[in-house]
Design a protein around this nucleic acid. Structure first.
Length: 801
RNA sequence: GCGGGUGUGGUGGAAUUGGCAGACACGCAAGAUUUAGGUUCUUGUGAGUUUCUCGUGCAGGUUCAAGUCCUGUCACCCGCACCA
């Protein structure tokens, strides 16, 4: 019999489907296991070899859990709203839903050809009104709870997409998606108050099993800092409040800085003698995009306010106020107290503008560089704080300021609220009606979903309005509150909306009355294991944790966190070690691999390629090794011998392999799990034959990685049923150790001999055998034996002089 | 600058309570089978001046013993970045 992957793979994909082998059961008394992959965006390019890396890994976990007796949910769906489909639609004058439909069909076919054990009965699609009804419903709940609000604000505007971007979508000053320049623009936007959850998003990381690097990145992104607000009196009459993390250095303040956008500047117009200069600087700063602003970061610029100054509240010193773009209006209070002796940026600015530098923490040479160390310094020149270490001084000054009513302890976050509107067509309409009398009125829940109307042109407008704005029939409506004429919101939601809750829908994908039933959520949540890309750490994962926490607070979901465990895979790079991309010409098409070598080989190779969590370059030669392995497995059928059990000589290799494959898979060490199976097949080949019992175990193990060929062998050998529905094999710990072992004998740390001894040999026997060894005795005779090191079952080291 | 990570044969990568560095695979070489081989099988394969020595980015240290622990340093990758 020759191995023919084309015939075998299609056949078993069909049989699994006919048998419903991978359908999650709705009977809730069995233990459940929910494995999740990031549902793909069905792009026009089709599947990338990167997709199957994550999918196969979770497929392996899902298959193993089924064999371990769990009711497994391993679902799939489509994150189908988004710009590429819309742009394609604009260019080719087809409806984005048509494009999406076509792309999904292609993706589906490609995914099915990989033999992934998805439960297709729960397939979802974010662009389906039955689905986005509930995305809109969640938005309404956020609105009712004051977490969705409209705000006039300066936003990131992509000049090419003609669309607002979230902070998270701006990378190095350019649009994450298209790479075009991003500028600031003031627009009225829907915002979501993710900042309200900042602290809990940090705290609850202790409840989940995420890799440290993911936790660290989220914590860093949320950017909590503790410090104090301090009120400074000014000669203009207003109190200028600043935020500082170093209130202990208050006596060292020699000037203050406000951001160019600070509202006081307009208010103080009459008193600022050099207002022309100030206005010119403001204008210059506003023109710069964020990118330019950070590009020139090295050189500090600014203008001193002539006519207004401040007073240091602790020592009465009169201090000048500057305006400079190194202070951001969006963080803290938009103003700072500058302590050049102990802050690098303030130090640079002070040097440039020749401002005094007063040392208040001893330990460095503040005329040479800022001394920022908080651990070792002692306060000096600081009145009531003199002699205190930094941390104590912080406490004392906050107490003092609080008592006097001129300051208070304060916690700040770098995290900003989430800009939630997009001026594009292909997204969920925001279910809000703007009434001239009643303001923003939510659409009644009974009217959901608000469907996307058919428009003639999907082209975004240059005024920055959504294409929906031209649809007067759709836009003009009546106010649900007062019944008067009103207009619909024409902005749509960002792509992140549908993906912020999709894992909930899988629990009960066809429910018409709720996003999912309470019982289904209670049973299936949380997701037990979620694997995805590192690039979503501060986007999708953070956003969906936020939504989930909100839904938890209003009693919709039963768990405070959506994902109990999150892991991340490394990228698959091109053969040249660079990121795969069309422009680099190093893209590998998974279809070609599946067609030439088969899905089983492809799956094995993607798992064998290297450490799952690290990036790995694709290597076409490497695939051959995996194909050979599959064929060697297939050919085991030709060397079958009598017997239904494992023979003595293979007892240890088999027990070891069962143990190792099981453990490695749990730790994402797929590469070494496969290596263990390759070793095992080498052991079998060395023996020259295999019993039915041995082949049975091997097939059960390999089935996780290469399911099709294993089903075929399973059927050929008439083991009964389907291999994917069998029990995971057990091993005997006692049979995982060899009866005789090899002990290394070292002299002065250098290997000099190997001993074959019984595994349970006593220390004395081992030592005397070692010394009796010819080579060893030649080394040690006539020398002083100072030390004997014995590591049981491993090594002997004789130290001589 | 801050946070996270990586550095091992010709190649992808194994090896972590410190205990034989290079598992497994690719590639390469020799041999066998074959009309043929981009097939299969067998054997070999870190380097060298080969009874031995050297070898895990570099320089030190601890230890009987270091890829692994400590100190310093270099290079590269990812994320963030004037966040007070």
């Amino acid at each position: 019999m020759k191995y023919d992957h084309k015939q075998i793979e299609k056949k078993w994909q069909d049989r699994w489907e006919e048998a419903g082998a991978f359908h999650a059961s709705d009977c809730y008394d069995k233990p459940k296991y929910y494995t999740l992959i990031e549902f793909p965006y069905p792009s026009g390019q089709g599947l990338h070899v990167g997709h199957p890396r994550s999918y196969t890994a979770m497929d392996i976990i899902a298959r193993k859990r089924r064999m371990q007796g769990y009711n497994v949910l391993f679902p799939i769906g489509w994150d189908a709203f988004g710009l590429p489909s819309e742009n394609y639609a604009i260019k080719n004058h087809v409806h984005p839903s048509e494009v999406t439909k076509k792309n999904i069909a292609r993706f589906k076919e490609q995914l099915k050809s990989l033999g992934l054990s998805f439960d297709w009965t729960r397939e979802i699609n974010t662009t389906d009104p039955e689905y986005y009804k509930w995305t809109q419903w969640i938005f309404l709940q956020l609105f009712h709870h004051g977490l969705a609000y409209k705000k006039e604000m300066s936003v990131n505007w992509c000049t090419s997409c003609k669309c607002v971007l979230a902070n998270e979508e701006v990378v190095n000053g350019v649009c994450e998606r298209c790479g075009s320049e991003v500028v600031r623009k003031v627009k009225s936007q829907w915002m979501l108050k993710i900042t309200e959850y900042a602290q809990r998003l940090i705290d609850d990381l202790t409840l989940v099993d995420y890799p440290d690097r993911v936790k660290a990145q989220q914590i860093h992104w949320i950017g909590r800092s503790t410090g104090a607000e301090v009120d400074f009196a000014t000669t203009a009459g207003d109190q200028l409040t600043v935020y500082t993390t170093r209130p202990d250095t208050l006596y060292g303040v020699t000037y203050m800085v406000v951001s160019p956008e600070h509202p006081f500047l307009e208010k103080w117009k009459g008193q600022i003698k050099n207002f022309d200069e100030v206005a010119a600087y403001q204008k210059e700063a506003a023109k710069k995009s964020d990118f330019e602003r950070t590009e020139v970061a090295k050189d500090k610029t600014g203008v001193r306010l002539d006519g207004v100054s401040a007073v240091n509240p602790v020592n009465g010193a009169k201090i000048p106020i500057f305006i400079s773009d190194y202070v951001l209006v969006s963080y803290g209070t938009g103003a700072i107290m500058a302590v050049p002796a102990h802050d690098t940026r303030d130090w640079e600015f002070a040097k440039k503008f020749d401002l005094p530098i007063i040392e208040v923490v001893k330990g460095g040479n503040v005329q040479e560089e800022a001394f920022t160390d908080c651990g070792t310094g002692i306060l000096v020149n600081s009145g009531i704080l003199n002699g205190l270490p930094v941390e104590e001084a912080k406490k004392k000054i906050i107490e003092y300021l609080t008592e006097k009513g001129i300051g208070r302890a304060k916690i700040n976050f770098k995290l900003r609220d989430w800009v939630f509107s997009r001026q594009r067509y292909w997204g969920e309409p925001i279910p809000i009606i703007k009434c001239p009398k009643c303001g923003y009125v939510p659409v009644p829940e009974s009217e959901l979903p608000i469907r996307l109307p058919n428009v003639k042109s999907y082209e975004p407008t240059d005024t920055g309005e959504s294409p929906l704005a031209h649809m007067t029939d759709w836009v003009n409506t009546t106010c649900p509150h007062c019944g008067g004429p009103a207009k619909r919101e024409t902005d749509t939601m960002p792509q992140w909306a549908g993906s912020s809750w999709y894992f909930l829908r899988y629990a009960d994908a066809h429910n018409h009355d709720a996003l999912a039933s309470k019982e289904a959520l209670k049973y299936w949540m949380p997701v037990d294991w979620y694997n995805g890309g590192m690039e979503h750490t501060t986007l999708h994962v953070l956003y969906s944790r936020f939504w989930h926490k909100f839904l938890y607070d209003i009693g919709v979901v039963p768990t405070p966190e959506p994902y109990a465990k999150r892991t991340s895979h490394g990228m698959i790079l091109g053969e040249n070690g660079e990121k795969m991309s069309k422009s680099r010409g190093n893209v590998v098409n998974p279809d070609d691999i599946v067609s030439e070598y088969g899905a089983d080989t492809m799956r094995l190779y993607e798992m064998f390629i290297g450490d799952f969590e690290k990036a790995a370059p694709w290597n076409t030669h490497g695939i051959k090794g995996c194909r050979r392995f599959v064929e060697r497995f297939w050919n085991l059928q030709d060397i079958l011998c009598e017997g239904d059990s494992i023979r003595k000589e293979l007892e240890v290799p088999f027990n070891k392999a069962i143990k190792k494959v099981g453990e490695d898979v749990e730790n994402l060490k797929f590469n070494t799990a496969i290596a263990a199976l390759m070793s095992l097949i080498n052991d079998i080949t060395a023996v020259g034959s295999i019993t039915r019992g041995e082949l049975r175990i091997f097939t059960l193990l390999l089935n996780l990685f290469a399911p099709h060929v294993c089903e075929e062998v399973w059927k050929n050998q008439k083991f009964g049923g389907m291999v994917c529905l069998q029990d995971w094999p057990k091993y005997d710990e006692a049979k995982c150790v060899d009866k005789t072992i090899e002990i290394v004998v070292q002299v002065n740390g250098k290997v000099r001999a190997h001993l074959n001894v019984p595994a349970d040999i006593a220390k004395e026997d081992a030592l005397s055998q070692a010394k009796a060894n010819e080579k060893i005795s030649a080394e040690i005779d006539g020398k002083n034996l100072i030390k004997e090191i014995y590591v049981p079952a491993k090594l002997i080291n004789l130290v001589v002089r």
